[in-house]
């Protein structure tokens, strides 16, 4: 039973990574940049939800919505002020800016909320599911997280495959100039991508803190890096790949924590990443496109 319970915890943690990783993947796919501030947007989302729930006594659902709005705006603002002016600059300049934005958000949070951890109250107040006469308990948080993850993946897949905006996004991701020649406003498309990615970050932040309730200004940074790892692991740019990468990473992390060593678990996670990339540099589901000349 411990095995099953570990597996469920792993899938649940992995689902959070997957939701965060989708934000990385979408932004990378379309703007061809690594938004290292993505993890910190998660933290801001969690604080937004925390504050409205604790200080204003808002209903958890309302606080989630508020957090989504805050993060969406934050994502669009970051893109407009920090990244858009660098659209034609080298990728290194953009990367360094992203790291700068990440520290800016962390330190702003430190100024506003201080370094004392806040104890996040779970947004899910349903009783855990008890199976096999109490031998196996599944927390409601796990169920909600996995369900949210599946819904988000289905939603995003439908969005990118079926809607006009989604198709424009894929076009921009493949060939910016050609998309522009079709009449697609590339800047709007990139902003929209940041908006969606950041809204997902808000959801991830709330779910993460519901399962692991210690909230500090650096809460987002480690999950952010792991989610980025998950995205690369599964195949950055591919939605199903990113999803798979996130879930596998969560499972590997929980299993190494419970069967090998708690302190080594992160090292093991990254070691697996290195091995996967050595064997398949595009990630598990990443595809290599050959261009016809």
């Amino acid at each position: 039973m411990t095995f099953v319970s570990n597996l469920i915890n792993g899938i649940s943690l992995g689902s959070v990574y997957a939701i965060i990783a989708l934000g990385y993947t979408m932004v990378y796919g379309i703007a061809k940049m690594l938004n290292f501030a993505h993890g910190d947007v998660i933290m801001v989302g969690a604080y937004a939800s925390y504050c409205t729930m604790i200080y204003l006594n808002w209903h958890p659902l309302l606080s989630i919505l508020f957090s989504i709005v805050v993060c969406t705006i934050l994502g669009v603002v970051i893109e407009a002020f920090a990244y858009k002016p660098l659209r034609r600059a080298g990728s290194l300049a953009v990367l360094i800016t992203a790291i700068g934005v990440s520290y800016l958000l962390q330190n702003a949070a430190l100024l506003i909320w201080g370094s004392t951890p806040k104890i996040f109250t779970s947004v899910v107040n349903i009783k855990p599911l008890s199976l096999f006469g109490g031998k196996l308990t599944i927390t409601a948080e796990s169920i909600v997280t996995v369900a949210a993850c599946v819904l988000i993946m289905i939603g995003l897949t439908l969005f990118t495959q079926k809607t006009k905006m989604g198709k424009a996004m894929r076009a921009v991701s493949e060939d910016k100039d050609a998309a522009e020649l079709m009449g697609v406003n590339v800047n709007t498309t990139i902003s929209t991508t940041f908006a969606i990615g950041s809204a997902l970050a808000a959801v991830a932040g709330v779910l993460l803190c519901s399962a692991y309730p210690t909230l500090v200004p650096t809460t987002g940074s480690m999950p952010g890096i792991k989610a980025f790892t998950a995205a690369v692991f599964g195949g950055i740019g591919s939605i199903p790949g990113t999803m798979l990468g996130g879930i596998l990473l969560g499972i590997i992390e929980i299993f190494s924590k419970s069967y090998i060593s708690t302190s080594l678990s992160d090292a093991i996670v990254f070691a697996v990443l290195i091995i996967v990339l050595l064997v398949k540099p595009t990630g598990i589901l990443g595809k290599k496109v050959t261009e016809k000349v």
Binding site: R170, E174, A178, M182
Partner: peptide
Amino acid sequence: AYKLVSKGMAHVPEGRHVFLQMTVLENLEL
């Protein structure tokens, strides 16, 4: 550039630049 399309200008770029990962129909829709 994106505003010129609705003004009636189309540009078939050198090297075609079709969207290689999208279907023929999706390319036309775009």
